[in-house]
Amino acid sequence: MKIKNSILILAVAVLVFSCATNPFTGKKTMALVSNAELFPTAFAQYDQFLTESKVITGTADAKMITRVGERIAVAAERWLTANGYHGYLNDYKWEYNLVDDKTVNAWCMPGGKIVFYTGILPIAKSETGVAAIMGHEVAHALANHGQQRMSAGMLQQFGAVAGNIAIQDDKARDAFNQYYGVGSQVGVMLPFSRNHETEADKIGLYLMAIAGYNPSEAAELWKRMKANSGSGEAPPEILSTHPSNDSRIANLTALAPTAVEEAKKFGVTQFRE
């Protein structure tokens, strides 16, 4: 009993003293790993990735990626400053690179290091489509989703260890180990990831709109993403790290007018085509 109580007290202490406020949602989020620890590692991994990849520079597409990224970063700075988070981005080191790769993907590492693959450009179709993707990926970094995923993974491991220590009966311990991994993944980790994607969609819409890009294009982008995914049957949403394409399109469509209103607060009333 003493062991169980100690584990419970430790778990509560970890959750209470290792939380941070997400400026974009106002929610308390897990922060078991600080940005001071996370950013240098992310920067080093990014630099290593670039040395192993074919980075495209000087082309119209490469310049577009940088231009859109800089506008999204300025939009983020404006939003954060207006909402009382001046200096939030001081430790971010923005960098934008286009990599020659057929993979349909783009990503932003913690701290603002961004990569677009050439394979996603035909689906982006336009600068506004690139802005929709850029806003979403930057939103993951701004909302510290990488930090939260690492923290959640650490808690998942902690729960497994704690369960094995607390459960004395061998059969009960075996049953716990059998079901804990699947249960924590489907019941906690996957919904956690899907929620991050939905948060990034909303934040990304705001950022692209404040940057002067039409947020209605985000839903159109995901219609093209859906078409590109082919006719194969997608896994059930409950078993996926991402919302379904249809859920995403519906959500982005519903949120676009809100993003337009948010942009008006910053004097943005017309959008680039």
Rank of each mutant, 00 (worst) to 15 (best):
D47R: 14
T66L: 15
L8V: 10
Y88G: 05
A75E: 06
T25V: 09
A20M: 14
L32D: 02
V12P: 05
W94T: 03
G84Y: 08
Q45C: 11
F17K: 06
T25M: 10
R71A: 10
F24R: 00
I7D: 06
L38W: 04
I9D: 12
D91G: 15
F17R: 04
T51D: 11
A42Y: 00
T66V: 14
W79I: 00
A13L: 14
R71S: 02
E95L: 13
M64K: 07
N83M: 13
A60I: 12
T21F: 15
S53I: 00
F17E: 03
L50F: 09
I7Q: 06
H86Q: 11
Q48K: 13
Y92A: 07
V33G: 05
P23W: 09
V12A: 07
I7P: 03
E95T: 09
E77R: 09
D47G: 13
N22H: 11
R78A: 02
A11T: 12
K27I: 13
V74Y: 10
T66S: 03
P23H: 11
L80W: 05
E52C: 02
A73P: 05
T21Q: 14
V74F: 12
T41K: 13
A13H: 08
T66N: 11
Y92C: 06
C19P: 07
G69M: 04
F43Q: 06
V33M: 08
V74C: 14
